[in-house]
């Protein structure tokens, strides 16, 4: 564990807290893409199938946290504050993302096993999971400040992971090509958002 990775994980945690706070305080999930949240839940569930495999207490607790909160957010959006969610704004076709990521995971993976292919799938899917949210934002044109904070925290989390990989490459010879390529694409998508955001 290094500084970049820990800070990245904490930013990731913070993004989720910001999102939960926004929904609870405003009692509304307007401006939030259910499809993006659904994709994140799929990402966490398919990636953390190795939950029984012990790495560290930190690792296990974080995995449980991510799975639990992502499903809880789906519950808030689909059940508790259902009336505040406007599906007509959330029109991105996620079937294509899911299909393309699954296909890529079946072809490009480290080993062709159930757990490993789903892990790879989750890496590819996380890279593009924000697209419905960005699409929704570009359609409505305006984002609440809190939604922007949410996206900022998520973007910072991704940027810090890039620095973490550079750090790990030099300090422990760590290399993970699948994660790096997907991560670079994911960070580029956020950079695009920041660019649009600051231009406005």
């Amino acid at each position: 564990m290094n500084f970049f990775r820990l800070t990245a994980d904490l930013m990731h945690l913070m993004s989720i807290f910001v999102l939960l706070l926004k929904i609870q305080k405003t009692r509304s999930c307007s401006g939030i893409s259910f499809k993006t949240q659904l994709l994140y839940a799929v990402v966490f569930v398919t990636r953390y199938l190795d939950l029984p495999k012990w790495i560290s207490l930190y690792n296990t607790l974080m995995k449980i946290f991510f799975i639990a909160t992502s499903i809880y957010i789906l519950y808030l959006m689909k059940v508790k504050f259902r009336a505040t969610y406007d599906p007509s704004q959330d029109t991105f076709r996620i079937e294509f993302l899911l299909g393309a990521c699954l296909l890529l995971a079946l072809v490009f993976n480290y080993s062709f096993s159930f757990i490993e292919v789903l892990w790879t799938f989750s890496i590819y899917l996380e890279a593009v999971a924000i697209l419905p949210q960005l699409f929704m934002l570009s359609r409505t044109g305006e984002a609440e400040t809190i939604t922007t904070h949410y996206l900022f925290a998520l973007g910072a989390y991704r940027g810090l992971y890039l620095l973490n990989w550079i750090w790990r490459f030099y300090t422990e010879n760590y290399a993970d090509l699948i994660v790096w390529i997907a991560g670079a694409i994911q960070t580029a998508l956020y950079s695009d958002f920041f660019y649009i955001y600051y231009k406005k």
Binding site: D9, N59, E116, N164, V179
Partner: peptide, 10 residues
């Protein structure tokens, strides 16, 4: 080694 340490990140 079936699974190397590569999946130690979140």
């Amino acid at each position: 080694e079936e699974t190397p340490a590569k999946h130690d990140e979140l």
